[in-house]
């Protein structure tokens, strides 16, 4: 649910990074935070445990610039990936405008990826959303590791609709902005359809 403010001439949109535990959702946000100009970003907030596992969510507000005189702001959120935080995970999806699914490319994490994708669909449906109709991008993260599954296989398992997908190494950056840009673009195109 985007928020369009004619008074302050702002558009605010919410993008959620979803995926299994330790797939690199928070790392994506940290990279975006590091590489964005100070005047374009707010604080990166992480509600995490002492061992740096996300407990509730991470939050990063980005002000990218203007479109037709409206300031465009994206609020990036991550969900806690661990299975037992299911209740919290649902809450973050409220009012989402676009979803990035971050998949862990390691072969042994394929099952966790599929489980998380199913969980995403169920949780979206509970809020009245359909993943097939929402701006949505898939990222295959950790491509630098030795034991990764081939992209074709991952596409078959996690991306049967063949929507845009990006190979990434969130720790060092390749693919991170490409993913964000793609989902942001879809969100704005969607906005254009409705307003």
């Amino acid at each position: 649910m985007s928020f369009i403010n004619y008074s302050s001439r702002e558009i605010n949109c919410k993008i959620v990074y979803y995926g299994p535990g330790l797939c690199g959702k928070t790392t994506n946000l940290q990279y975006v935070y590091r590489k964005t100009n100070p005047d374009q970003k707010g604080k990166l907030i992480s509600l995490a445990t002492e061992t740096e596992r996300t407990l509730f969510f991470d939050f990063l507000p980005l002000a990218l610039g203007d479109i037709k005189g409206f300031k465009v702001r994206f609020h990036l959120y991550t969900v806690p990936g661990q299975v037992f935080y299911a209740a919290s995970r649902k809450l973050i999806l409220k009012g989402v405008d676009g979803v990035v699914f971050v998949a862990d490319s390691q072969i042994e994490r394929m099952e966790a990826n599929m489980e998380s994708l199913d969980d995403l669909k169920i949780n979206l449906a509970e809020q009245g959303y359909d993943l097939d109709k929402l701006p949505y991008t898939v990222q295959f993260n950790k491509r630098d590791l030795p034991n990764v599954a081939p992209v074709e296989n991952m596409n078959k398992l996690l991306n049967p609709r063949n929507i845009p997908c990006f190979e990434a190494v969130a720790v060092t950056g390749p693919g991170v902005f490409e993913t964000l840009k793609n989902v942001a673009k879809q969100v704005l195109v969607e906005l254009k359809k409705h307003y």
Partner: peptide, 11 residues
């Protein structure tokens, strides 16, 4: 996107 987007007008 659902139709429940919040639109704020000047007035």
């Amino acid at each position: 996107m659902s139709g429940s987007d919040l639109v704020m007008y000047e007035e």
